[in-house]
Design a protein around this nucleic acid. Structure first.
Lengths: 337, 337
DNA sequence: GTGCGAAGGTAATACGTATGACGTGGCGGC
DNA sequence: GCCGCCACGTCATACGTATTACCTTCGCAC
């Protein structure tokens, strides 16, 4: 009968009649030929019998690494970031790494009292420098859709191309006065959107909002009740766009008749409301970033890919768009029996 | 200048001119009066100066615990589970615990090759027994909306009450033939929904579907093209309901005129499409479960709360319902400057 | 002066693993 | 017969922390 404390490699050694070092050598599989097959069999049998699993804490201490990656994002509740997580976690798992999520501290610049575990690397959505301080030491880092001019490797979306397509689309429809429901987060990708918009549209009014339905509703209401009401609302995120859509409806405005609305990300929300939006391959972002980080950990120089961002035209701008039924980016479904 | 390797407590000791044990005693704060204030000051100053952070791996090994909790869920991309995560992570952080997510392995019953870190406890959505095997040892566990008759403590929703309200609502509207878009997952809470439905509605036809937009669309299409088409579709999840809604629209059916549709969870999706749904306080589920787990870890017996599940009536069943603007359960928004 | 407790510190150890430094037989070559 | 080498194991150690047991010094009562 097993004791109430998990068996250690020493226990396995005793059971197999060998030394602890032998157990370690056999089970790590890194020492081919170092131990006779006969002995190896005994060790493996004993380990199996006792249900031995190496103690991760001890291994981490000994090896000085944890095979754990931290994903730093504003919030996991945004479907976009959830998809990023999925992509990253999948690649991580394939390479024997774990992924822990760390969502931004409530007070920006607050002390970074991250997870208890040490980490080998970090995937981070743009964040204040201050947040990065307080780490035990500089850590290999890949940024997510962040400043490509920065020093850290990064995986980007072609935001500028997407904004070109988007503003072109709106211009074709005759929209010249545009309201921008901007994400109230100091993140490169959002600044990029604002800049691209300002560069191409002469007449932009902006309202900032935290990324949520309610704040989007409020910001859009402010924009739509101006005396010089914009004819189109560009939102930095699908969630904000849903808030904007509801705000328009609540004001008795027709979409897209009275006001066109666009989102960003192309999560299921956009599909549901037939929102014109920019499709961002979020899952791929996570996966590519994780691959880059693995490169970094292996001493290789990771590529800095730019992933395509595709304009998806739906009824919230163009009433004649076909009724789509599965055009959004949906994470691969999982079933368990 | 700090070396390229992070400072250890020994380094701090050397810098402060004391022994390593003293450093540990001072910084842990568990030995009031054991060290003179004068010495303590020196130690703290040295630690600050060197930027000392204790090595988590060493601490975990020494203490035999990790202050890390694992959250086991089918997928993080479902907004419902993301909210659960948020609630759990918040409580965990308040108590100095970390939370790691583990999503179900692709093959059910596959080996549980969980995270590399050892964990102190587990929060789990219902899962196959087999998945629990392969852990290093039995681990304190709180279940999420799972069989209350089971041995593990659990936090539940009042699903039965919700289904009573829901079926009552549909009956009031004259619906007697109901299609059930059931989640194709072997999870207690979904079985519970099916059972409650069958018990109260004489005429139910069921189609099973993995939880996703596409599968919901397909399952609903099958139901709506039957010769004996149901007048209402009850979906186990908002995502499925969105698929069902689109399926109805694609078939040229009016919602709720030709077919009523209900979801489950009350995520933003339901709000967006004006779906009648059952509001589940997901964030609270995560938070309460985590509190229960902390009880367990402290040797206390956790309560087994039953959280209310509230029927939210919107236009997908009742055209006269008011146009809601913020009635869904939205996680607290975060902003970073 | 002796005993003795308290205050304030240090040495030593254990946690469980991985690995570099050592045996130790056996066998072939000269 | 001796040396060297190979095959196969074991010993010892280090990773960085928390804690137990110990040691020294000092003040004070008797």
């Amino acid at each position: 009968m097993p004791a109430d404390t998990p068996p250690t490699s020493k226990d396995v050694a005793a059971a197999a009649g060998v030394s602890q070092s032998t157990v370690s050598m056999v089970l790590s599989g890194k020492w081919p030929g170092r131990v006779s097959e006969r002995t190896a069999q005994k060790v493996r049998a004993a380990a199996e019998r006792l249900g031995y699993r190496p103690n991760p804490a001890a291994r981490n201490l000994r090896l000085g690494r944890t095979r754990t990656i931290m994903l730093v994002i504003p919030t996991i509740t945004a479907p976009f970031f959830a998809s990023v997580h999925l992509g990253a976690a999948r690649v991580a798992a394939e390479h024997g790494f774990s992924l822990v999520v760390f969502t931004w501290p409530l007070e920006p610049g607050g002390p970074f009292d991250g997870p208890q575990e040490a980490i080998d690397g970090m995937l981070a959505s743009s964040m204040a420098e201050a947040t990065l301080a307080g780490m035990r030491r500089p850590v290999p880092l890949v940024m997510l859709d962040s400043d490509p001019a920065g020093t850290a490797p990064t995986v980007n979306f072609d935001i500028d191309g997407a904004m070109r397509d988007l503003t072109g689309h709106l211009a074709d429809l005759g929209h010249h006065r545009i309201g921008h429901v901007a994400a109230d987060i100091d993140v490169w990708t959002f600044q990029c959107r604002a800049a691209a918009l300002a560069a191409r549209v002469p007449d932009v009014v902006t309202e900032r909002a935290a990324i949520s339905f309610t704040t989007g509703f409020e910001a859009a209401t402010r924009l739509l009740t101006r005396h010089d009401r914009p004819t189109a609302l560009v939102c930095d995120d699908d969630t904000l766009a849903v808030g904007a859509y509801k705000a328009a409806r609540a004001l008795g405005l027709d979409v897209p008749g009275d006001v066109a609305i666009t989102g960003f990300d192309d999560m299921l929300l956009a599909e549901a409301l037939e929102l014109t939006t920019v499709r961002l391959p979020a899952e791929q972002l996570g996966a590519r970033a994780m691959l880059g980080l693995l490169d970094l950990l292996n001493g290789r120089t990771p590529p800095r890919p730019v992933l395509p961002a595709e304009l998806v035209i739906r009824r919230s701008t163009s009433p004649s768009a076909p009724l789509t039924t599965d055009g959004h980016t949906e994470p691969a479904a999982r079933t368990a029996s």
